[in-house]
Structures are given as C-alpha cells and as structure tokens.
Amino acid sequence: MIAFIIRRLLQSVAVMLVVGLIAFSLFRYVGNPVDNLVGQDTTLEERIALKEGLGLNDPFFVQFGRFVVNATQGDFGFSYRHRRPVEYLIAERMPATLELSAVAALMALLIGIPMGVYTGLRRDGVLSKVFMALSLIGVSLPTFLIGILLILLFGVVLRWLPTFGRGEVVDIGWWSTGLLTTSGIKALLMPAFTLALFQMTLIMRLVRSEMLEVLRTDYIKFARARGLSNRAINFGHALKNTLVPVITITGLQLGSIIAFAIITESVFQWPGMGLLFIQAISEVDIPVMAAYLCMIAFFFVVINLIVDLLYYAVDPRLRVDVGSRGGLG
C-alpha cells in the first residue's frame, strides 16, 4: 500500500515537472522576456544589465530550478499585457470559474441521475426514447453552439436571461460571489446549463446502463420476492449500487468541467480564468499561459491521484497488478 502511494505520488510529481518544463521553456524561449518588460527607449546596456539582473544568463537548470521554486509559491511573474503579477490576475478570476463549474457539476448530477434512473426503469417508454435522442444530440453538438442557441432563445427572442457577464457580485473577503444576488443567479443559469449538458448526458447514460445491469442481479429478485415496494427496490437497492461509478466519473470529470469552462466562458463573456487564458493565447501573453497550464495540470494531477488512491482503497483486485494501470480517464 505504502509502496503504491509513493509510486503514484512520484508519478504525479514527474508529470508536474514535465508540465513545468514545458511552461518554463515557453516562458524562457518563446519571445524575449526582457523585450516584454522594457520600453523602446531602453538602451542596449540597460537591457544587458537587466538580463543579468533577472538571472537569464544563468545555466538552464539553475533557471528552471528558480522557476519551479517560484511557481510552487504561486509566483509566475508579470503578465505582458496587463502589466500585473499573474497570480493576482488568476486569483481575481478564480471564484467566477469555480462557482460556474461547481454549479454545472451539481446541475449535471441533479438532472442526469433522475433521467438515468427513469430511462433505466422504463426502457421502452416514449419519454425514455426522447431522453436518449436528446443525449445523442447533447453529445454531438459542440458546447459553444449550444451556448449560442440558448442565448438566441432566452436572451434575444424571449429576453428572460442576461447573455453575458456575471451580473452583480458580492465580495466576501477575497471571494466574489454571484450566488447571493438575483441578477447573479440569472446570469449563471445559461452558462452553467451549457457547461453541464455534456456531463449530464454522460451521467444519464452511465446511470442507465448501471441500472439495467443491477436490476438483473439476484439480490433485486430476492428483494422483490420479499415483497418490498418498487420504490424501495429501485431507489434503496438498485440506485444505491449504481452510485459508486457515478461518483468516480463525476470526480474525474471535474477537471474536464474546469477545462471546458474555457469555451463556455468565451461564449458568455464570463469573467473567469478560461476567458483570461483564451485572451492570453490570442495575444501570446506567455506568463499567463504558463501559469494557467501549470495550474490546470496541477488540478488534473491531484484529481487523478485522489481517484486512483480511492480505487486502490475500494477495490482489492487492483492491488495484484499495480504496474499495468496508468491514469484512467
């Protein structure tokens, strides 16, 4: 067990170092860090002095080491475009993205699970067929297109919901939340639904197939033989046993939700980290790109690590061949 944890931890650290190396090379060799810090009228001597002062003449590994040390302390330097420390920019944007992602994940669970249960129980019902067809469309349509169509319907034609931004936000310490104002919640509805839709269909299909499988097992038959009510069987026995994979998948998908938030934020001009990242890419603002890259990689690595360790704790079969299994999903 301990050997596995150490091995898995080392693997995570290795992934982070590789990502860090990519981010560092990007930062150091794409474009010239000095040119991006000084104005046009800086003399050559001043530039050389600045280069020496910034340690850009040090050996590669010394520079990389310094980058890693700074990065672990959240220091990614100055944004070329905003002329402010990157960590402030990201900290400012983080609440918006996390709020959006959390609400989307919750929505996906709260709508996806009941739909999955229903389609699992009434396989041939008309409504089930409708749900399945909708899920196919939900998987096929690109996220941004769903967002645009929602904007057209609820924002332009019906004029019920705002089409961009976060509405009014309330500051609680350093965290700004839109969940406490009516306009904030109204502004959240469409982006969160857009972001949730893909995960929702995923969860629905997963719950459906798990339900179909569980309902065939012996203990369900015995539960029926005992004369338990349908309700008790379906929800007390069947659904309960489908939830383990659902929770795992949702956990793994949390990272994807934050990544896909880039697209949703761009459609709805939601002032989160994803929008910051997209602007950084199109303007080649490398410190922001490097910081976002490291942060999202950290997020994924931590989630995968937790899921792997949980699996290991839950499923003894995995302990036999540890080596053959890498990061799933």
Partner: peptide, 25 residues
C-alpha cells in the same frame, strides 16, 4: 504508453488548445 497515459488524463481539446497556443507563441 506512459506518455499516452499522461496525455489521456487531460481532455483532448485542452491539449489541442495548448499546442495551438505554443505554436502561435
């Protein structure tokens, strides 16, 4: 296969976005 594992733990669109960003840089 280790590289494949690592890449598979990130969504493809994110990887495409990053490569696109790096090449643009």
């Amino acid at each position: 296969m280790r590289i494949a594992d690592i890449q598979l733990s990130f969504p493809a669109i994110l990887i495409a976005l990053l490569i696109d960003g790096v090449v643009r840089g």
